[in-house]
Amino acid sequence: MGKSKYIPYGCQSIDEQDLKAVADALTSGWLTTGPNVDEFEEAVARLSGVQYGVAVSSGTAALHAAMFAFNIKEGDEVILPPMTFAATANCVAYMGATPVFADVAPDTLLIDPVEVEKKITSKTKGIIAVDYAGSPCDYIALRKIADEHGLFLAADACHSFGGKYNGSPVGSLADITTYSFHPVKHITTAEGGMAVTDNQRYRKRMTRFRNHGINADFKERPDWFYEMEDLGFNYRISDIQCALGLSQLNKLPDWVTRRRELAAIYDRLFAEIDGITPLGKPDNVNPAFHLYVVKTDDSLRREIFSYFRKHGIGVQVHYIPVHLHPFYKKRFNTHKGMCPVAEKEYESIISLPIFPGMDNDDINRVVETARSAIAAAKG
């Protein structure tokens, strides 16, 4: 019998339609910012239930642009969860402001609104909610807190594109919502991201920010003259990437449906196995399942993780809590004990493979490997 194929925790799907879309873009006469960018922005905004989209070079760029739109500056504080990729906090630090970490709920690992309220000070300017693993946060509670304290509410929805909360699409729940189109996400533009909003002022600020702070792009200028109004960045995305994104977007509903089917299979099979516990699912949400995260015995996590890897299953851990990274300890004096729930749950979590290209044989292999890994770890 040949060696079993490697199953990564996430993987893009590329078909002939995608290849044709990219080839057409390459021969269209537009390589950088062109008509595909506008069309992609409009399509993603429409799917999100808002008016505007601003496409950029990455999900990180989208977060940075959002903080610029909110006019975050030195001395300000922004509350966010520690259970996220570092970019969620980095975007605050980029602006010279201070990320303040509010702990998460133990069952879902989503930011806990009760902990958010505890962290509000006179310096607090906003909240960044993170839809960890693909489940939307409690936006009703977070919106109430934001409105009561005059704060902005941003959504890092890089995990939840295509999801819903109380029947409303992700993208319509915050003042600005950000997406990532990295290859392991729900759709890909290779690298890329977008911020969506209903606020025209925010849209204008983000559009300017992605283009060096220049007040109008070349399509809007009647002649050679332009002015740089802000210190922006080159965060533009190419027409080629957006052509791929448009093609991928057509398949998003089917792909999200398949992710939900895979998660349901995992849930059913792991109900029969001691030692593996899936994350809880919040009420009133329809998750998009970017990740399928399980908890195991923290004393056995490393052995179980290594067993998976040794047997061709590309498990991962999402994430080391951001406040435990050396940069944050040095710059912001963060330390262990600040977010005890996130710290405790981090010790036990493993992300298992979930992506639309998986078949039922793949998922059965992951589950059987989990069973064997637990048995081996227990000796």
Rank of each mutant, 00 (worst) to 15 (best):
N234E: 15
L252S: 10
Y307S: 00
K295V: 08
R309W: 07
S238G: 10
D274N: 09
P282C: 00
E303R: 13
S247F: 12
K281A: 03
R236F: 06
D274E: 15
R301E: 06
A243P: 14
V285M: 02
L279N: 02
P282G: 01
V256F: 06
Y307K: 04
R259T: 03
F308W: 07
K310M: 15
D297F: 04
E261W: 03
W255F: 13
G280F: 01
A243N: 08
L246N: 07
S247Y: 15
C242T: 11
P278K: 07
A271L: 04
Y266T: 00
L244E: 11
K251P: 15
Y307N: 05
Y235E: 08
N284Y: 10
V294Q: 11
Y292T: 06
L249H: 03
L269Q: 12
V256M: 05
Y235S: 11
D254M: 12
K281W: 02
D283M: 07
G275K: 00
I276H: 01
I265H: 10
N284K: 10
T296D: 10
F270K: 03
V285G: 03
P282W: 00
V293L: 07
S306L: 14
N250C: 13
P287A: 07
F305D: 08
I304E: 07
G280Y: 01
P278D: 04
R258H: 14
D267F: 01
I276P: 06
C242Q: 07
V293E: 13
D239L: 01
